[in-house]
Design a protein around this nucleic acid. Structure first.
Lengths: 331, 331
DNA sequence: CTGTTAGCGCCTTCAA
DNA sequence: TTGAAGGCGCTAACAG
């Protein structure tokens, strides 16, 4: 009966009497409209896909939550999947999402370089993509991320201002543009301060806490320890802190420290940790909004939007100026 | 052409020549089979839904990851959604998932009591549900969770063994059976030790870190501070630790401490925190396996399965025996 | 082994 | 304002 459809979609007026009769029947029969059939007919699934490398890294659930909120406002659902930061798996998932007929995709690319065609083919098929957080190189695609270079500079400058001079940067894989940009910001700040950034103060790791721990233990065992360390992401921060622990070092007593990304416990950590906070929720929110605009506005055209949000520096104890520290120790 | 279908599904044999021709065409046209149409025809979506209260609580992404892994092994996808721990929203989401024709649902119920009918109606409609982590009362439904009472007892007993006597339990909302069970375990251990668990040592909070912080600050400001605190979940632990900080207390120097759930930083936290670790990934994995069994085995019948996994105690510094501590201070 | 065909449940004309 | 009918893309059953 077409009338039922009219009642449900509300697109065509129906008499009150009939409507309430239909509604009663719906409750009675415990009826749930079949979105599958509807989608087949309308070719609208009102579903967005989001692919993230690893949902157990706290940054990503926040992005997802933001995207979910924006999607919900417009009646869309988000389906979240993990690529495990693996290029092959990512390819499968994108294909899967296409098959599921999601109307748009939020993508945090895997660390392994994503072939351009993988993304551009989807775009050509008319499915909009917005890249979040990690923006692939040399590809005209909408993106939302933090202002990475500025954020790197902000963090490094803060350590400089606190009085540290020999500052190491513990970074994630430099295959990621994000990480390179952050490092670039650090370098700029270092150059401006006239101290430069020596190669042996750039500690490049991956995103596995264990590996980073080992890496930093090595570095810390060598002569010429830095006075402070800036970590450019959350997992790396955990690695650095574990390495501190392994060496019996504590921050800021023995070494200054600051990091990108909240560790969920920064405030209670003793001493609390200075953090460059990315607006993760908002990245997801804005990205989904942009995606929905592309979907509903049908504006696949135009220039790609490149939204860049500022990071915020939360100064806590781990970056306390070393001289202040020394003074307070003397007391 | 039906033959294309044969090639894709592999259900009907096709000559090699034809097959490769079809495959070539698929690549050529950048063709992606429409799962929506397939689902409509077969009434199989190969999709599971999972509803969690809040994906930004680290416990849940781990459960989701486990479920995803199990699902993937059998060619299913998981779509994850947040209820915000809100009963109304949960109802909407369940309805949504039904409309999406997921083949089964993993559910972590919201704190507000979930009406039995909400769940039983779905079951009656032939859509299996497995409850994870939080098991609703008085409802015959499959469930996978940790052995809560045992885990509570384990933690409390550990603090007793360490030599603490006056031990407070900081719990989540006792409306959750989980929390009651954990508390019950604590009480049993306390009773066996002949000290009982006084009402003023039961600090019932909610799952919002800020609120718990305030609650614990209050309690800690009163006379008769406990010698140790056991927290029964992750967010609560953060609240307790913040309250410690607010009072300038440190653990275990001033007070012993142990908690359910890893805080992602337990090992690096100084001092490191004794934790009752739930097998979160495995909870998700086992739950999805069970769900898939129900789906594929069609065994909606039979008794509900109640899988209970053991928690593991990771003893770290925050629960160091007070006398050992005192001794080491004297040195 | 291959090609044809009839729906899956819904929404959208279109005619009544 | 209401009801009837066609077809979305696919698969399963069947005929060739």
């Amino acid at each position: 009966m077409g009338t039922v459809s009219h009642v449900i979609t509300g697109a065509v007026p129906v008499t009150d009497g009939l409507r309430s009769k239909v509604e009663a029947a719906i409750r009675e029969l415990n009826y749930h409209p079949n979105h599958v059939a509807r989608s087949l007919k309308t070719s609208k699934t009102r579903t967005l896909g989001i692919v993230v490398p690893d949902m157990t890294i706290p940054f990503f659930p926040q992005v997802i939550s933001g995207a979910e909120a924006a999607a919900r406002e417009r009646g869309y659902v988000v389906i979240a999947v993990n690529s495990g930061d693996d290029g092959e798996r990512q390819k499968e998932l994108l294909s899967l999402l296409r098959s599921q007929r999601v109307e748009g995709i939020l993508l945090v690319v895997a660390s392994a370089p994503t072939p351009q065609t993988q993304i551009s083919r989807i775009l050509e098929a008319g499915i909009p993509i917005v890249c979040c957080d990690r923006v692939p190189e040399r590809l005209r695609v909408d993106s939302v991320s933090v202002e990475n270079r500025e954020a790197g500079r902000l963090g490094f400058q803060h350590l400089l201002d606190a009085g540290y001079r020999r500052i190491a940067v513990a970074t994630g894989p430099l295959a990621l543009r994000n990480e390179r940009q952050r490092l670039l910001g650090c370098r700029e700040a270092a150059d401006e301060a006239g101290i430069g950034l020596e190669p042996d103060l750039i500690w490049e790791g991956n995103l596995r806490v264990e590996d980073v721990t080992a890496l930093c233990r090595d570095h810390l065992a060598r002569p010429g320890r830095p006075e402070a360390i800036l970590s450019t992401n959350g997992p790396t921060a955990l690695g650095v802190l574990r390495a501190f622990r392994a060496h019996g070092l504590s921050t800021p007593r023995d070494m200054g420290f600051a990091t990108f990304d909240e560790l969920t416990v920064d405030e209670i950590f003793l001493p609390s940790i200075t953090t460059i906070v990315q607006p993760s929720y908002e990245i997801g929110f804005r990205a989904a909004e942009l995606l929905l605009e592309r979907i509903e506005g049908g504006s696949a055209a135009a220039e790609p939007m490149m939204v860049r949000l500022p990071a915020v520096l939360k100064i806590r104890e781990s970056s306390r100026p070393p001289d202040v520290l020394a003074a307070s120790l003397k007391q």
